[in-house]
C-alpha cells in the first residue's frame, strides 16, 4: 500500500491547524481514526474527514492533494518521513521539525521552517515573512536543517537564525538575516534593504547588491574563503542551485559593527 493522501475537498472557510497530521502522530491509526481527528485553528470544530478525503495507509509518506493558504502548522514537530503539498500551504510550515522532508509545490505563509532543528523543507513558490524566524517573543529562529525557497521570501528571512542553511532563489524582502546569530543564508535574486541588520555571526551570501546596505558593514576585500567553493559545491550537489551563483571574486563585508557583530555579508557583483 502506498502513502497516505489527504485530498482537500474544498477551499477551507477558516484556518486549519494540521499539526496532528505528521508521520509520527498518525503511525498506527486506521483511516477511520484519522478522519475523526479534530483540527483546531478556526471557530468551528472541524474533523479531518470534514475537509479531506483520506486514502492510502502508510503515514511515512503523506501527501496533501490540493492546497490552501489556510493550512497552518503542516509538519509541526515532524521527526522523519515525508510530507508533500501539491498546492499552497499556510503559516508555520515545518515549525520545530527535527527530521524528514517537506516539499510544497505552491507558496506558503509566514514562519516557514520556524525554529526547525533538522530535516529539509523545500518551497517551490514564494514564502511569507520570517521564514526560518521565531514567533513573536521567541529569541531563537531556525536551529538547523535546510530550508529552500525557490520563489521569493518575505521580510526578515532567517531572523535570529542560529544554525542551518536557508536559500531563497527568487530574492527576498527587507532585513534578511536580521539579528542572525549563526548559520548560512543564500539569496539569489533581488534582496531588499539592510541585510544582516543587528547580526552577530553567520554568513549571508547575495548574488547581487541589496537595495540598501547598512553603513555599519565594512568592506574587507574579495572573498577567498575555502568555505566559498565548498558551499557552492554543496549547493549544487543538493540541487539547490545549478550554477556557481556567486561568480568570481565576490566582495566580503563584516558586521554588523553596531552590535558589534562578526558576521559576514558576501555580495557578488555578477548581477549588478
Amino acid at each position: 500500500m502506498s502513502g497516505l493522501t489527504f485530498t482537500l475537498l474544498a477551499e477551507p472557510t477558516q484556518r486549519l491547524d494540521l499539526s496532528p497530521l505528521t508521520p509520527q502522530k498518525l503511525a498506527g491509526l486506521s483511516a477511520g481514526e484519522i478522519e475523526k481527528i479534530e483540527l483546531g485553528g478556526g471557530g468551528d470544530q472541524v474533523k479531518v474527514g470534514d475537509c479531506f478525503k483520506v486514502e492510502g495507509s502508510d503515514p511515512e509518506t503523506i501527501v496533501f492533494e490540493g492546497g490552501s493558504k489556510r493550512l497552518d502548522w503542516i509538519g509541526t514537530d515532524m521527526e522523519a518521513g515525508s510530507i508533500r503539498v501539491t498546492g499552497d500551504a499556510g503559516a508555520l510550515l515545518g515549525r520545530r521539525m527535527t527530521g524528514g522532508s517537506i516539499v510544497v509545490k505552491g507558496s506558503v505563509g509566514p514562519y516557514a521552517g520556524s525554529q526547525m532543528q533538522d530535516g529539509r523543507v523545500e518551497i517551490q513558490g514564494d514564502a511569507g515573512d520570517l521564514a526560518a524566524g521565531p514567533m513573536a517573543g521567541e529569541l531563537r529562529g531556525m536551529c538547523g536543517g535546510t530550508l529552500i525557497i525557490r520563489g521569493r521570501a518575505g521580510e526578515r528571512l532567517g531572523d535570529r537564525m542560529r544554525r542551518g542553511l536557508v536559500a531563497a532563489l527568487g530574492g527576498c524582502g527587507d532585513y534578511p538575516g536580521s539579528r542572525m546569530i549563526a548559520g548560512t543564508i543564500v539569496v539569489a535574486g533581488e534582496a531588499g534593504r539592510m541585510p544582516g541588520y543587528l547580526m552577530r555571526r553567520g554568513s549571508i551570501l547575495l548574488d547581487r547588491p541589496p537595495q540598501e546596505l547598512s553603513p555599519t558593514f565594512i568592506e574587507s576585500g574579495p572573498w577567498f574563503s575555502a568555505f566559498a567553493s565548498l558551499l557552492e559545491r554543496h549547493l549544487m550537489q543538493e540541487g539547490i542551485v545549478d550554477y556557481p551563483f556567486l561568480g568570481e571574486g565576490p566582495m566580503r563585508y563584516v558586521g554588523d559593527n553596531a552590535v558589534p557583530g562578526k558576521g559576514e555579508l558576501v555580495i557578488s557583483s555578477l548581477k549588478v
Binding site: T76, M135, A136, G137
Partner: peptide
C-alpha cells in the same frame, strides 16, 4: 507584553 511566548495559548495546543 515582554513575554508573549510564555502565555499558554501561544503554543499550538
Amino acid at each position: 507584553l515582554l513575554l508573549p511566548e510564555y502565555h499558554k495559548a501561544h503554543l499550538l495546543r
